Simulated scan of single mutants.
Amino acid sequence: MDKLKLNPDTQYIKRITLIRERIDSYDEYPLNLPVVRNLRELDLHPNVTYMIGENGMGKSTLLEGIAVGLGFNPEGGTRNYRFSTFDTHSRLHEFLRIAKGVYRPKDGFFLRAESFYNVATYVEELGPEAVMTFGGKSLHRQSHGESFFSVFLHRFQGKGLYILDEPEAALSPLRQISMLRRIHELVNRESQFIISTHSPILMAYPEAKIFELTKEGIFEKRLEETNHYALMKQFFDDKDRLLHHLLQ
């Protein structure tokens, strides 16, 4: 396989900036989220960028804002998907400036765990040709994990921008490792990923950027410096001691 990784000169999305002069108040959702209060600029990696952090920091809202700002359906899918099951997306995209590179992706997909069922239903409604792009088998006639993985395996073609919100939600640890391999294949086909995740396995992609979102700020970290990694390492290094204190 030819290695055609994107670089700073060819990446599709370079930077995310919060347009603070448009914001009158940070008191209401989504502008009251920690990620918004702390966001200035985020320079994205040409290949893989991770957004991580505890629940409530605003990871999914930020990814949704980026996706909507780029023209993707708020519930997921491609830029051509035009359906709405229940309109709940925030206005965050109105306050984001997305710096694009010179080159444009030929493929793209916004995958979010919480509304994947709606995307699968829409694919069914589009008919057999659409189903074929996902491997030829109905997404509803597979397990949740299998249908999720079918998207990575069959629908993502390369030369694409892929925005993934907690993709590990339906995947076993083995499937998460397989997903790392698939990400690598697509990175070598001129693809760029922006991923929010809680999974230390998925965060392990070499040379990726990891932004940890906290109440105190947004910090770029190595995998081994993240709270997710430290907690999992502590658990497995001394499981009995941790469980003793936790459950007594």
Rank of each mutant, 00 (worst) to 15 (best):
residue 6 L to N: 07
residue 8 P to A: 09
residue 10 T to K: 13
residue 11 Q to A: 01
residue 17 T to L: 13
residue 18 L to A: 09
residue 20 R to N: 11
residue 21 E to C: 00
residue 21 E to S: 12
residue 22 R to H: 09
residue 30 P to I: 02
residue 31 L to F: 06
residue 31 L to R: 07
residue 32 N to K: 14
residue 32 N to S: 14
residue 39 L to H: 06
residue 41 E to N: 13
residue 48 V to S: 14
residue 52 I to D: 13
residue 53 G to W: 08
residue 61 T to C: 05
residue 67 A to P: 07
residue 70 L to V: 10
residue 71 G to T: 10
residue 77 G to C: 05
residue 89 H to K: 11
residue 90 S to A: 01
residue 91 R to F: 00
residue 103 Y to W: 07
residue 107 D to Y: 02
residue 109 F to P: 02
residue 116 F to Y: 10
residue 122 Y to W: 14
residue 123 V to I: 13
residue 137 K to T: 10
residue 140 H to R: 12
residue 149 F to L: 07
residue 151 V to N: 09
residue 153 L to M: 12
residue 154 H to Y: 15
residue 155 R to C: 05
residue 158 G to N: 06
residue 158 G to I: 09
residue 160 G to M: 03
residue 161 L to I: 10
residue 162 Y to T: 01
residue 162 Y to H: 05
residue 167 P to N: 05
residue 173 P to N: 09
residue 174 L to A: 08
residue 179 M to I: 08
residue 182 R to P: 03
residue 182 R to H: 04
residue 184 H to C: 04
residue 189 R to M: 13
residue 189 R to D: 15
residue 195 I to E: 01
residue 195 I to W: 00
residue 195 I to L: 01
residue 203 M to H: 12
residue 206 P to Y: 11
residue 216 E to G: 00
residue 218 I to E: 15
residue 219 F to M: 05
residue 219 F to I: 06
residue 219 F to K: 12
residue 222 R to M: 14
residue 223 L to R: 13
residue 226 T to M: 10
residue 239 K to N: 06
residue 243 L to V: 09
